[in-house]
C-alpha cells in the first residue's frame, strides 16, 4: 500500500498541478458561473427578461459601461485609478454636439471627439508621470475641472443636436446582424483590448509596471510611457462611450457620465482586476459589466426602486473586493 503510494507520487504531483490550473481557471470560470446563475434567476423571476427587446437593452447597457471599464482596466492593472472618465464623457458629449451643430462632417467630428478624449487622458498621464501626482488626486482634480468645463462651455444646458445634422445616429441607434452597433463596438474594443494586453509588448509592460514598477524600470521598461499609454487609452474609450451617448440621445449633456467612473471601477474590480495592480484582464471586465447589467435589469424588471438598487450595487462592490482581499491573504 505504502509502496504503491510512493510509486504514484510523481503522478499526484501532476494531479496537484492540474488542480492548481483548474483553480486558476475557476477564478475566471467562477465569475462566468455567477453571470450564468444570475441570468437563469432573471429568466425565472421575470418573463420579460428573455424578451429579445429586453435582452438587446441589456446588451446595450453592457456595451456602454463595458467600453469605459476596459479603459479603466488598463489603468487599474498599473495600480492606478482614473476618476475623470465620467467628466471626460461630459466634455466630449458637449463638444460633439456643438461640432455637429456647426455642420462639420460626421467622420471629422468623431475623430476630433476621440482625439479630445485621448488628449484629456494624456493630461492625466502627464500629471501622474512628470509631476508625480498620485493618480487618485490627479484624476480627482481633472474630474472636477472637466465637469466644470463641460458646464461652462454648454452654459449648463443640454445641447440638442439639430435635426438637420447628417447621418450620425447609426452609432447609437443603428444595428447590424440584429445587434446594436454599440454592441459591435464594444465587442471590437474587447477583442482589441484582449489582444493588446495578452499579445503585445505594451500589454506585458502594463502588467509589469502594475506588479512591480521598480523591477519594471530595472528591466528596461519605460514606465512613464506605459503610464501615459494607459491613461490615454482610458480617455479615448471614455470619448468613444460619449460619442455613442450623444448619437443615441441626440443631445450633448454637460451632466452626462455622472458617476460613471465609480460604475466602471466597480465593473473592473468585480471582473477580478486587482486594485493593487498586475492582476486581471479584459475577459473578467466584460463579464463584470454583464453581471452588473443583468443585475440592474432584474431589479428594474422586478420593480425595485432605483434607491434600493444603489444599496445593492454598493454591497456587491464590497463583496467583490473583500473576496479579492481574502484570496490574496491565503
Amino acid at each position: 500500500m505504502s509502496e504503491q503510494q510512493v510509486a504514484v507520487s510523481p503522478n499526484s504531483n501532476n494531479g496537484q498541478r492540474w488542480m492548481q490550473g483548474l483553480s486558476h481557471r475557476l477564478a475566471a470560470g467562477g465569475l462566468f458561473l455567477v453571470l450564468l446563475v444570475l441570468t437563469v434567476i432573471a429568466a425565472l423571476i421575470s418573463d420579460a427578461f428573455l424578451n429579445p427587446f429586453n435582452l438587446v437593452n441589456v446588451l446595450r447597457q453592457i456595451a456602454l459601461y463595458g467600453i469605459v471599464s476596459m479603459g479603466l482596466t488598463f489603468v487599474i492593472l498599473t495600480a492606478g485609478i482614473d476618476l475623470s472618465v465620467g467628466s471626460i464623457v461630459a466634455v466630449v458629449a458637449v463638444l460633439t454636439a456643438m461640432l455637429l451643430n456647426m455642420g462639420l462632417a460626421v467622420p471629422l467630428v468623431l475623430l476630433v471627439a476621440l482625439a479630445c478624449g485621448a488628449a484629456l487622458g494624456l493630461v492625466n498621464g502627464i500629471g501622474i508621470t512628470l509631476i508625480k501626482i498620485p493618480p487618485f488626486i490627479m484624476t480627482l482634480g481633472t474630474m472636477v475641472m472637466l465637469r466644470g468645463l463641460a458646464l461652462t462651455i454648454s452654459d449648463g444646458r443640454p445641447i440638442d443636436v439639430a435635426s438637420t445634422v447628417g447621418n450620425y445616429a447609426w452609432i447609437g441607434r443603428g444595428s447590424a446582424l440584429g445587434l446594436p452597433i454599440a454592441v459591435w463596438i464594444f465587442a471590437g474594443v474587447a477583442v482589441i483590448g484582449f489582444v493588446v494586453l495578452s499579445f503585445t509588448r505594451f500589454g506585458r509592460n502594463v502588467y509589469a509596471v502594475g506588479s512591480n514598477p521598480e523591477a519594471a524600470h530595472l528591466s528596461g521598461i519605460n514606465v512613464r510611457r506605459v503610464l501615459l499609454g494607459v491613461y490615454t487609452i482610458s480617455g479615448l474609450l471614455a470619448a468613444l462611450t460619449s460619442v455613442i451617448f450623444v448619437s443615441r440621445l441626440s443631445v450633448g449633456e454637460p451632466t452626462a457620465g455622472t458617476g460613471l467612473e465609480l460604475e466602471a471601477i466597480a465593473i473592473s474590480v468585480i471582473g477580478g482586476t486587482s486594485l493593487f495592480g498586475g492582476q486581471g484582464g479584459i475577459v473578467g471586465t466584460a463579464i463584470g459589466a454583464a453581471i452588473l447589467a443583468v443585475l440592474a435589469n432584474i431589479m428594474n424588471l422586478v420593480g425595485i426602486s432605483p434607491f434600493t438598487q444603489q444599496i445593492v450595487k454598493g454591497a456587491i462592490i464590497i463583496v467583490a473586493v473583500s473576496s479579492e482581499v481574502l484570496r490574496r491573504r491565503r
Binding site: Y207, A208, S211, N212, A215, L218, G278, Q279
Partner: peptide
C-alpha cells in the same frame, strides 16, 4: 523581491 522579481507573475 522589491527590485528584481515580479512575484505575482
Amino acid at each position: 523581491r522589491k527590485q528584481g522579481l515580479f512575484v505575482s507573475q
